[in-house]
């Protein structure tokens, strides 16, 4: 864990832009246009347009039932959409794509596999050779500070540690795009803030495109380059706000920043206007 802190998110904006350019034009770009989804008679999403640039960290906040989780599942290739298109890196999403990885709300770990084997499973499934799997798993486990517990089963871990395993599994896949579905909703408040800072540190290493669903306005401001506010009935984008707080960030530095309070107020107002926030 200390190793992770040390690797805290460094890098000036100029370097960041350079890195993004080096990664190629939009390998991790997510583009949703004119998305519709109905459940029976109800429109869950109605003509949603959303673009996440390559290397950008976007948080989506919105009241329950606004379709934000549905949106993520569509991007992940886990749910179908009725109309419109989603492309990631120019490729149309119809099934889970290789360059996309998901961090699940309830961790999504296999209880019968040890920490090591949970992280290794998708790498083995993808046909990587043994040495490469071992190297990548060890690296990912070290990154999230889980050395020494890699032979434990998920039942032996706390919620925070379980989600570290979830993150390790995602990082080991070396995705261009990380989709996170309320990943820290099931852990306690303090662990949550610790995990937020760790995520910032991990993300800053490779600047993958990140789409992070959350209920928490604070979490969204802390993590995101841009906060997208969704409204309900039907689900749509009601606001799209750039967070001007410089990186590297910590939970504390974000709270102290002058734009924090007005941002929080603005998002809160949007949520209140668009439906009961939960």
């Amino acid at each position: 864990m200390t190793a992770m802190r040390a690797a805290s998110d460094r890098g000036a904006p100029a370097e960041r832009a350079q890195a993004a350019a080096a990664a190629g034009p939009g390998r991790g770009e997510i583009r949703c246009s004119g998305l519709y989804k109905w459940y029976g008679q109800t429109a869950v999403l109605s003509g949603l347009d959303l673009t996440v640039a390559n290397g950008e960290f976007v948080c989506v906040v919105g009241p329950s039932g606004c379709g934000k989780t549905t949106l993520l599942r569509m991007m992940a290739g886990l749910a179908e959409y009725d109309h419109g298109t989603i492309t990631i890196g120019g490729e149309k999403v119809t099934a889970p794509l290789a360059q996309v990885a998901v961090v699940f709300q309830h961790f999504g770990l296999f209880p019968w596999k040890t920490v090591y084997n949970n992280v290794a499973l998708p790498l083995r499934a993808a046909g990587l050779d043994k040495a490469e799997v071992r190297r990548r798993v060890a690296e990912a486990i070290a990154l999230v500070g889980l050395e020494g517990v890699d032979d434990r089963y998920p039942a032996q871990l706390s919620g925070g540690m379980k989600q570290r395993v979830g993150l390790a599994r995602t990082l080991a896949l070396r995705p261009e795009v990380i989709l996170l579905d309320e990943p820290f909703a099931a852990v306690d408040a303090q662990t949550r803030e610790i995990l937020q800072e760790e995520l910032l540190g991990l993300w800053s290493r490779h600047r993958q495109t990140a789409l992070f669903i959350t209920h928490s306005i604070d979490e969204a401001i802390t993590l995101a380059d841009r906060v997208v506010v969704m409204g309900t009935k039907p689900g749509r984008v009601v606001d799209d706000i750039v967070v001007p707080i410089p990186r590297p960030r910590t939970v504390g530095s974000v709270r102290r920043h002058e734009s924090y309070a007005p941002l929080r107020e603005r998002i809160w107002e949007q949520l209140r206007a668009s439906g009961s926030p939960t």
Partner: peptide, 9 residues
């Protein structure tokens, strides 16, 4: 769903 997302055949 996780299995599908991890692209297990």
């Amino acid at each position: 769903e996780v299995s599908r997302s991890l692209r297990l055949n």
